[in-house]
Amino acid sequence: MIILKTPEEISKMKKAGELVAACHREIAKRIRPGTTTWEIEEFVRQFTKENGAIPEQKGYHGYPYATCASVNDVICHGFPKKEPLVEGDIVTIDMVFSVDGWMADSAWSYPVGQVSEEAKALLDTTKESLYIGIEKAVIGNRIGDISNAIQTFAESRGYSVVRQFIGHGIGRTMHEDLQVPHYGPAGKGPRLKEGMVFTIEPMLNIGSYAARIEEDGWTARTVDGSLSAQYEHTIAITKDGPLILTDQTI
């Protein structure tokens, strides 16, 4: 069942979203060659503690960390590690915070130092595809309109769209009953209504969209070793258009 939120509830979720966005802004200052994703993990744990938030990913179905840290060919759900990032890497940090029982979710991909033109183009296109999808998140459209806009744009630039992982409803729990694929035909899926809150989180690969899961049961990599990037916002459907709850400027 899709759970519609009241304006008051959306306001509460926005508080969580603003904190996630603030944390991402701090992470952006810390991503550089020599930094480890374990240091980012420790920073996020301290950040949530100091700001009265709960890192909801930690303990979710046994996931042991506050962040997902996905480097280069890792699509998503990578574990934070003590191995230093190196010049030219790209890394996605994904976080879900709960504030007073309401959640917000955002992933952001970061260049580590100077990256290749190929990597930069992937990052730029993935971020742009997120906002192209958000433009379609208006009352009366369908989920498929978001999905198709993202796929059409990404594939026009020569990238593949990951099928295995999709956006989702969110509120008092991390995953609610609304699925948001980033591919598929327009005009399909649930019609968008005021009060819906969900994530849009396209993952684009330079090569094949296929993923493989490592033995840890979480880490998803591209099957061909190609680079992958992801950008994600939590949005609310309002009468005035899509409201980005995790809005940030990086």
Rank of each mutant, 00 (worst) to 15 (best):
Y159M: 09
A119P: 01
A137T: 13
L192A: 01
V115S: 06
Y110M: 01
K14Q: 14
L178C: 03
R45F: 02
T6V: 07
V20A: 13
P64T: 07
K12N: 06
G217P: 14
T199P: 00
A22C: 05
I75N: 01
A104C: 02
D240S: 14
Q57D: 06
D224C: 11
M13H: 08
D100V: 05
D94E: 09
A69D: 10
I10H: 00
I146M: 00
N205F: 06
F165M: 14
I134S: 01
V112H: 02
N205C: 15
A229Q: 08
V161G: 11
D145A: 01
I244K: 02
G17P: 00
N141H: 14
R142I: 00
D216V: 10
I132T: 12
T92K: 03
I143P: 00
Q57I: 14
G88Y: 03
M13R: 07
V138E: 03
G184E: 09
A66G: 04
I150D: 02
I27E: 08
R25P: 00
H175G: 01
G241M: 04
D145R: 02
I31K: 03
I237F: 03
Q164P: 00
T35I: 13
G184Q: 02
G207F: 07
R32P: 00
I170L: 10
G184V: 06
I206Q: 06
S226W: 08
E83Q: 11
E87T: 07
W218S: 09
M13I: 05
A22M: 06
L227I: 13
A107N: 05
E214F: 06
S70W: 12
S208V: 14
A229V: 12
V96M: 09
S156D: 13
T92S: 15
A236K: 05
L85C: 06
T48D: 01
Y209N: 14
M1T: 08
R32K: 15
W108Q: 12
L227H: 11
S147V: 04
K29H: 12
G217H: 10
S147P: 06
H182N: 15
G217T: 13
F47T: 05
T126E: 08
A149F: 09
P64F: 08
E135W: 05
I250W: 08
A69Q: 07
S116W: 03
A149V: 08
